[in-house]
Design a protein around this nucleic acid. Structure first.
Ligand SMILES: [Mn+2]
Ligand SMILES: [Mn+2]
Ligand SMILES: [Mn+2]
Ligand SMILES: [Mn+2]
Lengths: 221, 221
DNA sequence: TTATTATTTTAGATAAGACTAAAAATTAAT
DNA sequence: ATTAATTTTTAGTCTTATCTAAAATAATAA
């Protein structure tokens, strides 16, 4: 079994390494974990001793198959708990992350598999992120950032890139929710803002917002 | 906020001090926590610094009002999680304790109060132990050990004194469950065993068993 | 009451996880 | 190809929570 710290480092390395071929750098990890590079070096030695990552001095770390599996299981727990909090305990999607950060470290395979069943084996968490199965496999939706859509294209809002409270609360305020259909009406070159239609309303959205909303394109739009 | 260790020590001191006027001794705590007396001394100094207990050298510790409240809240969480595991996640009553030991340390007032609501504000956990409310108050049932009942007395089985897996599994095997009506048919002086009637069956029960089952007496029996 | 035993505390060590400051290696710039 | 800047590692310190061994205190017995 792994310590709380080991699990948190491993999860960070897993996320940082997802979309890159090369190793994850010490500084990247330190920045993400709000800690110092020297602390990271200490920890990756421990993770390496436990075969969770491959570490070569000055070359960053790469997660092993074993490490990836272990990390995916923690992510699975995190996201299932987030669903539970929203579906069963009336949390809003901007309140769940901190609590899930604690709950993801609870050790009990039965607990998490029963929770999965209670929730009806959900495939996405409240932010649209995929939930790995017991084997650590998951199937990400095909999705594009709203900012990349052309005029006239439409789709369903299926996820967020930024899960910060402030962004999620902004979406709530603008009544933009996952599942909503969104159509691009126009794009303003001057500030890269985007005019959209959503649930019979028209809205102008800044580029920053559009770069943090994922859309599943509807065929024939 | 308190560390995991601080919470565990405090909870032990709370439980050990419940039925006694005098302070809780260092050795008692060490025995219960499976640690060394010197470790206990170190920790009670920390708890004392945080006003959770009053500590006088060589005189043991007494929990403060603040400490009692803090401990009751941890116990509240432990027992609510046990109910959740049994009621919602198909755990049996002998499987819940270890997981609840982890879950009781999760910090989120909203989580625990919503969980309470989801479960319908239960008053007892799966072992018949009372669940403190938000203020730390609880109302223990009037109950007696089965071993203390006289011949002819009857009552409802409402709790266990020993929550070990082996005892709980024994009760399952004998089909003795909380809520069952039990009547004392006879007592054997030779080995202090007790003959009981339970759900139309007659059973002979050892003194050890009878000393770990709590009964709520039915008036007029 | 004094001696013996048991309990409790202190002193000193260890391990995990964090930090600062300094050294070493790598990368970027001239 | 050197030099300069950046990144990464090492060395040493700190805190928390443990432990063992020894000293101090309290409880018990002779
Ligand atoms: Mn999250
Ligand atoms: Mn999420
Ligand atoms: Mn329990
Ligand atoms: Mn219980």
């Amino acid at each position: 079994m792994f310590t709380l710290s080991e699990e948190n480092y491993l999860k960070t390395i897993y996320h940082l390494g997802l979309n890159s071929e090369i190793g994850v750098s010490t500084n990247e990890i330190a920045k993400k974990m709000q800690t110092k590079a020297s602390s990271v070096t200490d920890m990756i030695k421990k993770l390496s001793d436990k075969n969770l990552v491959v570490y070569k001095k000055y070359k960053g770390v790469r997660i092993t198959d074993f490490g990836r599996n272990t990390a995916a299981n923690i992510v699975r727990k995190h996201r299932l708990w987030e669903v539970f909090l929203v579906e069963k305990l009336n949390f809003s999607w901007d309140e769940v992350h901190e609590v899930a950060e604690q709950l993801e470290h609870i050790k009990s395979p039965k607990l998490i598999n029963e929770l999965d069943a209670l929730l009806g084996f959900p495939k996405q968490d409240p932010h649209g992120d995929p939930i790995p199965d017991k084997e650590g496999n998951y199937y990400p939706l095909e999705k594009k950032l709203l900012a990349t859509l052309g005029i006239g294209e439409k789709g369903i809002c299926v996820g967020v890139n930024d899960s910060s409270s402030s962004f999620l609360q902004f979406l709530d305020k603008q009544k933009i929710a996952l599942g909503n259909e969104i159509k691009v009406l126009g794009k303003e070159p001057f500030d890269d803002s985007i005019q959209i239609q959503i649930a019979n309303r028209e809205l102008s959205i800044s580029n920053k917002i559009a770069n943090n909303l994922y859309i599943k394109i509807l065929q024939g739009s």
